[in-house]
Amino acid sequence: MAENEISLFDISWVDVLFQRVFPYLSLKDCYNFRCVSKSAQELVDNYFFVMKNVNLSSYRSFNATSFKVLAVNCHNVRYINLSHCKWLTDDLLQQLFLNNNHMTYLNLSGCSETLTSVCLQPVIVLCKDLKYLKLQNCFWLTEGCMEALALHHHNIEEVDLMFCWRLNDSCVSNLMRSCCRLRLVNLSFIFALTDITMIVIGECCKLLEHLNIKGCWRVTDRGISAVAVGCRFLKTLFIKECKFVTEHSLGIIRGRVYIDMPRQVTMDFFDFIAQMPSPPLPIMEYIE
Rank of each mutant, 00 (worst) to 15 (best):
M1N: 13
E5K: 12
F9R: 10
F9C: 08
F9A: 09
I11G: 07
S12K: 09
V14F: 11
F22N: 04
Y24N: 15
L25N: 05
S26D: 10
S26H: 08
K28R: 13
V44K: 01
F49P: 01
L56C: 10
S57F: 05
N63T: 10
T65V: 13
S66R: 12
S66N: 14
L70W: 08
N73K: 15
H75F: 13
V77Q: 02
I80F: 06
C85H: 00
T89S: 15
D91H: 11
L98F: 09
N101T: 06
N101P: 04
H102W: 08
L106N: 04
S109I: 02
S112Y: 06
E113G: 01
P122M: 06
F139N: 12
G144Q: 14
G144E: 15
A148M: 11
L149D: 00
L149P: 02
L151W: 08
N155G: 09
V159T: 01
W165R: 10
S173D: 03
N174M: 15
L175K: 01
M176I: 03
C179P: 02
S188Y: 01
V200H: 09
G202F: 08
C204D: 08
C205P: 12
C205Q: 06
G215S: 07
C216K: 03
V219A: 04
V219M: 04
T220Q: 07
T220S: 15
R222K: 15
A226I: 04
V229W: 06
F233C: 11
L234N: 07
L234S: 04
L234G: 00
F238V: 09
E241L: 14
E247W: 03
L250G: 02
L250A: 04
G251E: 04
I252V: 07
R254P: 01
D260P: 02
Q264C: 11
F270Y: 12
F272M: 14
M276Y: 09
E285W: 12
Y286G: 13
